[in-house]
Amino acid sequence: MKPPLPADPRHICVLRLSALGDVCNLVPTVRALQRQWPEARITWIIGQGERSLLAGLSGVEFVVYDKATGLAGMRALWRELADTRFDVLLHMQQALRASVLSLGLKAAVRVGYDKARAKDAQHWFTQRHLAPHPRAHVLESFLDFARLLGVDDLSLEWDLPIPALAVKEARQLTGSAPYLLVSPCSSIRLRNFRNWSAEGYAAVIEHAWRQHGLKTVLTGGGSTQERQLGERIKALCPQEIVTDAIGQTPLKGLLALIREARLVIAPDSGPVHMANALGTPVVGLYATTNPDRAGPYCWRDFVVDRYPHAVRTFLHREPTELPWGRRVRHPDAMSLIRADEVIERLEAVLALPEISPATEPSDEA
C-alpha cells in the first residue's frame, strides 16, 4: 500500500540541489507550503551556489550538499540528518545522484514526479507521484507538489532577501540613473549553445542608449568564456555606455543589480528567472530551449521565441512532435534571433508602466 500523505505535516523536506533558475522557480511552492502550514519546519537540501543565492529565505533551513564531494558528502549529510525524520520528502530533483542521496533520508512518505515527467528512473525512489500534467512549465511542475498535498493558495510569492550592503554596492557600481542589465552568457555545459552573438547584444545596447538614454551593465560569472564575450560586446559599443561587472559580483550582488535594473536581457539562464522572481521586466532570448517550459514565467509574452524555428531548421520536426523539454543542441540555433526582434521586445517592455521593485533590501548579512 502507498503510505498516506500527511494532512498536517510538521516537518517537510524539499530536495532540490540545482540550478539557480530552477531554485528561483521553486520558491513560490515553498511560500505556498508556508501559507498552508505556517508552523511546519521546512528543510531544503540544496547545492552550495544555490544556497548562497537564497540565503536568508525566511522560514527555511538549508542543508547544503556539494555534488563535488560525491559519496563522501552524501554520507556526511546522512550523518547530519541521522536523527531527523520528515513527515514528507518532496523529491524535486530528477537526477540519479539526488535519488541516491534521498535513500539516506528518513521520511514517512516520499513524493516524486509522475512517470511521464520522471527522469533517471526517479519514480522508483518515491512512493507517491504527482498527477499527470502534460506540457507544464517548470514552475507549475513544482507547484504540483503543493497541489498533491492539498495546498489551497497557490498564488505566486517570492520575497527573496537581498542584503542592504549588496544593494549599496550595486548602486555604487551603477549610479542613480536607470540602466539596462545584460547577462549575455548561460552556464557552461557540454553542448549548451544558448548564447547569443556579441554583435546582436551590441546593437541592442546602442539602441537602448540612443533611444532611451539607458546605459548598460554587463553581468555574469568570471569564466574565460564570459569575460571574452563581454570584451567583444564592449569593443563594439561606445565605451562610455557600458559598465562591465562580469565576474565582479557574488550572487546576492547579482540579485541587487537585477532588482535595480529597468530591464534585463539574457538567454535561458539563471538571471531571467531571478528577474522574474524580483518583478524586474525581462526579455528572454530562446532558441535552443522551449520558453513555454522554461521561460521567465511572468514575462513569457516578452520572450524572443525562436524555438519553433530552430526545431524545424535543425531537427526537421514540428515542436508538437517532440518530447516536452527537448532541446535543440545546435551551435547555430541562437543565430536565428535577430537584433530587431530583441529591440521590438525591449520597446514593448519599456512602454509598460514602470514597476516598483518587488522587494526592499533586507538586513540579511
Rank of each mutant, 00 (worst) to 15 (best):
L139M: 15
L57N: 04
Q225R: 14
V242F: 06
E199G: 15
D332R: 12
H129K: 12
T243L: 12
Q48R: 15
H129T: 09
L5V: 08
V264F: 06
R31W: 03
S141Q: 14
E61W: 03
H309W: 08
L148P: 10
S155E: 08
A333K: 01
G325A: 00
T280F: 07
I12Y: 01
S269Q: 05
P134Q: 02
H309R: 13
L160S: 12
P38L: 07
H91N: 14
A131D: 13
V23H: 04
D66P: 04
P238A: 12
L336Q: 09
G21E: 02
P178Y: 06
V138K: 03
I241F: 03
N276M: 05
R35L: 05
G200D: 01
R35I: 05
Q48W: 00
S197P: 05
L149W: 08
E344A: 15
M334G: 10
A68N: 10
E80S: 14
H123S: 14
A358R: 12
A333C: 08
R306W: 01
T359K: 00
D153T: 07
E344H: 13
P291A: 01
P132N: 02
L33Q: 02
M74G: 09
A72Q: 11
P271S: 08
Q172C: 09
V111A: 09
W299V: 01
H316A: 14
R227Y: 00
Q228T: 15
F314G: 10
R306Q: 14
R327N: 10
A198Y: 03
G112H: 07
Y201M: 07
Y179A: 08
E354I: 11
Q94T: 09
W196I: 13
R35N: 02
A339T: 14
P178A: 13
M334W: 02
V109F: 04
L96C: 03
K215P: 09
P357M: 07
R300M: 01
D332T: 03
T249V: 14
L143N: 03
R75P: 00
K67F: 08
T174N: 04
A82E: 13
A146R: 05
P178M: 08
S183T: 13
V328E: 02
D292N: 10
I162Y: 08
A365P: 01
C24S: 06
G325W: 00
T29K: 00
I355P: 02
Q127D: 11
D83L: 01
I162W: 08
A339P: 11
P4L: 12
E260T: 10
V272Q: 09
T126P: 03
L173G: 06
H212T: 06
D332Q: 15
